[in-house]
Amino acid sequence: MLAQPQYQKVAVQDLQVGMWICRMDVDTQDQPFETCALRYQHASQLPMACRHVYIDLQRSEAAKTSTQPPQRKFYLNLRNEMKRVMGDIRLGHALEKKRLRYLLEEIMQSVVHDSQNMVYLAMLHDHQDELVSKSLNVAILSLVFAKHIGLRQDQLFPLGQGALLHSMGLLQVPAQVLNKTAPLTEAEKELIREYPRRGYQYLLEQGGFDEQTLDIVLHHQERTNGEGYPDKLKGRQIGFLARMVAITSVYEALTRTRSYRHALTPTQALGQLYRWRFHDFDARLVEKFIHSLGVYPPGCLVELNDGALAVVHATHAEQRLNPQVRLLTRQDLEPLEVQHLIDLATDPQRSIKKTLDPTDPRLTPLLERIMAKHPGFPL
C-alpha cells in the first residue's frame, strides 16, 4: 500500500533546499482548493508575508536520498495499484473496491497538493500497460481540470472514479483489434463502439456505484453533435461530468503514441481540441480545460531564448507565458547530466522562444542523446 503523507510546520527561515512545501500561511492564488505544492529552492518562491509553511516529510526526505524524483516513484506506485485493479478484472475476479477507493483518494490528495506536477508525470511516455496508464492519466487530468473550475466537492469522487474506470470495457476488446494499424472492419468498429456499454454493465453487476460514475463510464464517448457512441446523445443530454471526461480522455489519447499514429505535442493536442470545440465537445469546457493547462502545457518541449532546450514542468496561473521548466541541454545543445528546474517567472534572463515538435527528424539525434541520459522524460 502507498505510504500516507506526513506533514510538519516549519518556519520560513528554517527551510532547506529540497523540502516539499504543501501549504503556506498566506493565500497566493485565487484557487478553489486550499493547498499548493512546490519544491523549495530559494526564498523568492514564497510571498514576503509568508511566515511558516507545512512540508511533506516523506517527499522532502526522499529528495535528499533518492536519485529518482520522489514524485516519479509515487506515480509509479499509483500505476502499480491501478494495474492490480485491472489485473483482477482481466482474470475475471470481482472489482476490489477498497483498493480502488484508496487509489482514488491518493490521486485526489496528490492533485490537491501538486496538480501541475501530476500533469507532468501523466505526460511521461515510458508506460508499459497502455490501458492502465490511460485510466490513471485521464483521472489525473480530470481532477486537475476540476480543481481549476472549482467543481463541487460532492462531484470530485464520482468524477475521479468515473475517469479511472472509463476504459474498463476495453479490457474485453481483443488486443489485436486495439493495436491494429490497418483500418478497422465494420465488425471491429462496432466492437469498439460497444466498449462503454460493456464497462457500464460490468460496474452494474458489481453494484455499489453512484449514477454519476456510471454515466461517465457509459457516455464519455458521446459527442455534442450526436455523432458519438453508444447512445448518440446530443448537447446537454450528455451529463456534465461525462462531458469533462470526454475532453480529458481525448487529450490524453492525442498525446499518446497509438498503433496507427504518432503522439501530438501537448500544444498540438490543445490546438486540435480547440478546433473541435464547437463540433464535438462543450465549447466552454474545452476553453476552460485549455486554460487549466496553460499556453505552454506540462510536457511541452521548448527552445529558450539562449538556445537551450527545456521541457515545461509546471505553469503559473498569473504568468502563463513564464512557466517552470526542466532544463535539458546547455546553450550549445549538449545534454545536461542534471536536469535543473528553472522558474522563468523569477528568471528575467530566460524566456521561451518557441515550442518544438519532438517528432521533427532534425531533433531526433539530440533527443536520443537526452533520453539515453534521462529515460522517461515526456517526449
Rank of each mutant, 00 (worst) to 15 (best):
K189T: 07
T265Y: 04
Q221H: 11
Q212Y: 04
I370C: 13
N225E: 00
A63E: 08
D306W: 12
H42A: 12
D360T: 05
E186Y: 04
V132I: 15
F145I: 09
A314K: 10
H316T: 15
I342H: 03
I352R: 04
G307D: 04
G162Q: 06
L2F: 04
A308D: 12
E81K: 13
T315L: 02
G294L: 06
Q221P: 00
E337C: 11
I107A: 03
H279L: 02
L367V: 11
H113E: 15
E227L: 10
I107H: 09
V53G: 08
G294T: 10
E303Q: 15
L285Q: 12
T255D: 09
A37I: 00
D25V: 09
M1E: 02
R243C: 05
M168D: 07
H262T: 10
R101Q: 13
L165M: 12
A372N: 15
L57S: 06
E188G: 04
P158E: 09
K373S: 13
R320E: 07
Q201S: 14
Q116H: 06
T355D: 05
T267E: 11
Y274V: 00
H279C: 02
P70K: 03
G169F: 08
Q237D: 04
E81A: 14
E188M: 05
D347W: 01
L204T: 10
L46T: 04
I55W: 03
K353C: 15
V295E: 06
Y120M: 04
E222T: 03
A3W: 05
I216N: 01
E337M: 10
L321C: 00
V10P: 00
A314Q: 08
M48Q: 07
G294M: 04
V144W: 00
C300T: 13
R23T: 13
H219W: 09
L367P: 07
Q29N: 06
G150E: 07
S110M: 06
Q116M: 08
E105W: 07
V173D: 06
P196R: 11
